[in-house]
């Protein structure tokens, strides 16, 4: 992602803000406010009898303030720890495949059962590899599925059905 390219020199005297800090700070502010606002809907109570919302409200506000500090850091040259590090582009497709693989497992493991779900999950994940063809991914996932079934079902005796209710297991 080229927009994330470090301390780009903008027009005028002020350098452009350091984007990673800007994003991190914004994330902290949004999350902090979300927890604070949602927390204030619960019973906040008083310092003597703190309700369910007291601690989330206080911590959420604190997180938002810290987020502001991180944003301020973005305008002052950025975090020295990562400022000069060369960042590779975000692997959207590969990362998406990995996350998709995990989500697939969560959605389908109870319905399809362990064996088919595992095969598809590892197949999707394997596709994320550099230069992995669908055939190679299928071979890889078949091997891993077999290994997992031996380890988890045969050796560790996990009580997970191999075939789910949708497949008559």
């Amino acid at each position: 992602m080229s927009t994330e390219s470090g301390v780009a020199h903008g027009a005028g005297h002020r350098p452009a803000p350091f984007r990673p800090d800007l994003y991190a700070g914004a994330a902290f502010i949004v999350l902090g406010l979300a927890f604070a606002i949602a927390g204030s809907r619960y019973d906040v109570g008083s310092a003597l009898r703190m309700g369910s919302g007291y601690v989330p409200l206080a911590l959420g506000a604190l997180l938002a303030v810290l987020g502001l500090l991180v944003v301020a850091m973005a305008f002052r040259g950025g975090d020295p720890a990562i400022r000069d590090v060369q960042r590779e582009p975000v692997p959207w497709r590969r990362g998406g495949l990995l996350v998709g693989a995990v989500m697939f497992f969560g959605f389908f493991v109870s319905g399809l059962g362990l064996a088919p779900t595992l095969f598809v999950t590892t197949f999707i994940a394997a596709l994320a590899g550099h230069g992995t063809s669908p055939l190679k991914a299928a071979l890889t996932s078949a091997g891993i599925t077999a290994l997992c079934l031996v380890v988890f079902v045969a050796l560790l005796r996990l009580r997970l059905p191999l075939l789910g209710e949708w497949l008559g297991g």
Binding site: L98, A101, V102, F105, G106, V109, L114, L118, T121, T122, A125, A126, A128, G129, A137, T140, S141, I144, T145, L147, C148, F152, L158, L160
Partner: peptide, 10 residues
Amino acid sequence: FPAIIAFASI
């Protein structure tokens, strides 16, 4: 890494 994903999910 697909194996690690599988182990972690299971």
